[in-house]
Amino acid sequence: MGFILSLVTQERHLLTEEVDYIQAKGVEGEFGVLKGHAPFLTLLDVGEFLVRKEESLYSYFVAGGVVEVLQDRVTVLADTIERADEIDGRRAEEARQNAIEALKQPVSSQSRLQYEQVLKREGVRLGILARRRSMRHPGPIREE
C-alpha cells in the first residue's frame, strides 16, 4: 500500500497515481518519502525525481516548485517536469555547450549566474539520460 502522488505543472497534469516511494531533490538536500510521512513542505531544486511503484522505477526531470507531503498524499507543484523519455538529449547538450562557451568570455555577474543555472539544468538532464541508458534505472518509463 502506498500513497497518492500528483505531479502537476502550471501547464499540464502529468499524473495522479498510487505509488510506493518517491525520492526528490529539495533545496536542502535529497529526501525520500514513504507512506505515513509527517506533513512536510519544501521547495524543489533542479534534480531527478524518482518514483517507485510495484518494483518499477520511474524517472522525471524536475526544476523548481513546491512539494507538499501529507500522510497519504504527495503533491508536486513543479515549475518544470519532464518524463525521462521526453528529455531531448541533443538540445540539452547544445544548450550546455553554448553556456560553456559563453562562460569563457567575460560576462556580467548576472548573466554568469544565468549561464551557470543552464549548466546545472542541462547537466542534470544529461545525467538522467545517461543513467537511463546505462540501465541503472531499469524500470520501464511510464507511457501515458
Partner: peptide
C-alpha cells in the same frame, strides 16, 4: 483529519515567498 503543523524546509517564510 490531518492536524498539526507542517515541517518546513527551509523555513516557512521562504516557502511562502515562493508560494
Amino acid at each position: 483529519g490531518h492536524s498539526g503543523e507542517y515541517l518546513y524546509e527551509p523555513d516557512r517564510r521562504d516557502i511562502l515567498d515562493v508560494l
